[in-house]
Design a protein around this nucleic acid. Structure first.
Ligand SMILES: [Mn+2]
Ligand SMILES: [Mn+2]
Ligand SMILES: [Zn+2]
Ligand SMILES: [Zn+2]
Lengths: 150, 150
DNA sequence: AAACCATTTAATAATCATTATAAATTAATT
DNA sequence: AATTAATTTATAATGATTATTAAATGGTTT
C-alpha cells in the first residue's frame, strides 16, 4: 500500500481521516478541492469527519509536500495532489472549471523581471480568470464551491 | 476641487470619511493599503472613522473605478489608486515592499493560452513573491501589515 | 437659515474561513 | 493486553469582512 508509505515518510500516523483524504486526492488527481468540498464529499459517503480535522490534515499534507495549496480569489483555499510539477491555472468564473498550464516563456520572464531589480524569486501565483464559453458545460450545473463571479 | 467631482460622478455624497480616503490615496498614489492600514492612519491623524466605514468606502470606490483591489496572499485585501493602468506586482515577503511591472510578453502569452483553449479572458492576477535582499530596507523595520512569510 | 429627507455613518452584531484548545480516542510499540 | 504519544472530536476563538439599525449628516427646498 502506497498511501501508508507516504504518511509514514511524513512522520504521520495512518489514521482514518488521513487515509480518506489521501485516497480522495489520489483517486481524483487534477481536481481542486476546498476544505469544505472534501468535508461534504465524506459526509455524502457516510464518513463523519470533522471540518477542523480536514483543515488540519490538508495543512499537514501540504507541509509534507503531498498536496499543493492555491488561492483562487474566492476567499477559500483549494488543494490538489502534488504531482511534483509546478503549473499555473485558468479558472472559469462561470462554471468553476480549472485548467492547468505551464508556459516556459512566462516562467522565464518572471525570473528576469525580479532579477532586473535585484530580487530573489521565492514564489509566484498566476491565475487567469476566464469564461469557458460552454453553455452546456457540465460543471455549470454542479458548480464547485470555489467559483465566484468577478 | 477634483475629489468632489470624482465622488459626484460616482453618485456618492462628499462625506468626511470619503474625502479623507480619497485624499489619502491621491496623496500616496502607488501605495498599497489594507483597510486596517487606512483605519490606523486616520487614528494617528486624529480622525476616528469606524473600520466598517473604511471597508464600505473602499468597496464603493472600487466599484466606482476609483480604486483597485488586489489580493497578495496574506489574507487581507490591499487597495491602491486606480490610475487606469493595468499592472502586476512584485511583493517582498520580508519587508512588504511592493513594486509594479507590466510585461507585454506575459500579457500576450496569457491571452494566447486562453485563446488556444477557446476561453475568453476576464481578468488575471500575477503576483511574484520575492526577497528584496536589502537588509537595511527601511520597510523591514516598519513592516506593513500586508506582509507574511510564505 | 430652518426644515426636509434620502443617504451615510457609527456602533455593534453577524458571518465566513480558518485556527486553537482541551478532553476523549486511537495507532503504533512494548 | 497495556502503555503512551499522537490524533480526533467537539467546541471555542480568531481575523477579516459584511450586515443591521438607529442616529447623524449632506444636499436640496422652502
Ligand atoms: Mn492545479
Ligand atoms: Mn499596484
Ligand atoms: Zn466554464
Ligand atoms: Zn524587502
Amino acid at each position: 500500500m502506497n498511501m501508508n508509505k507516504n504518511l509514514k515518510k511524513a512522520g504521520l500516523k495512518a489514521t482514518l481521516p488521513r487515509l480518506r483524504v489521501m485516497e480522495l486526492f489520489l483517486n481524483e488527481a487534477g481536481t481542486h478541492f476546498t476544505a469544505e468540498d472534501v468535508y461534504k464529499r465524506f459526509l455524502t459517503e457516510g464518513d463523519e469527519i470533522g471540518l477542523a480535522t480536514i483543515y488540519r490534515v490538508l495543512t499537514q499534507f501540504e507541509h509534507a509536500g503531498l498536496l499543493q495549496r492555491h488561492h483562487f480569489e474566492t476567499g477559500k483555499a483549494v488543494f490538489e495532489l502534488n504531482e511534483g510539477n509546478h503549473h499555473d491555472h485558468l479558472v472559469c468564473i462561470e462554471c468553476g472549471k480549472v485548467e492547468e498550464f505551464l508556459d516556459e516563456g512566462i516562467e522565464k520572464r518572471q525570473k528576469e523581471i525580479a532579477a532586473e531589480r535585484g530580487f530573489a524569486v521565492q514564489d509566484h501565483a498566476l491565475y487567469i480568470y476566464v469564461d469557458c464559453l460552454r453553455e452546456n458545460c457540465p460543471n455549470r450545473a454542479a458548480k464547485l464551491s470555489h467559483t465566484k463571479p468577478l
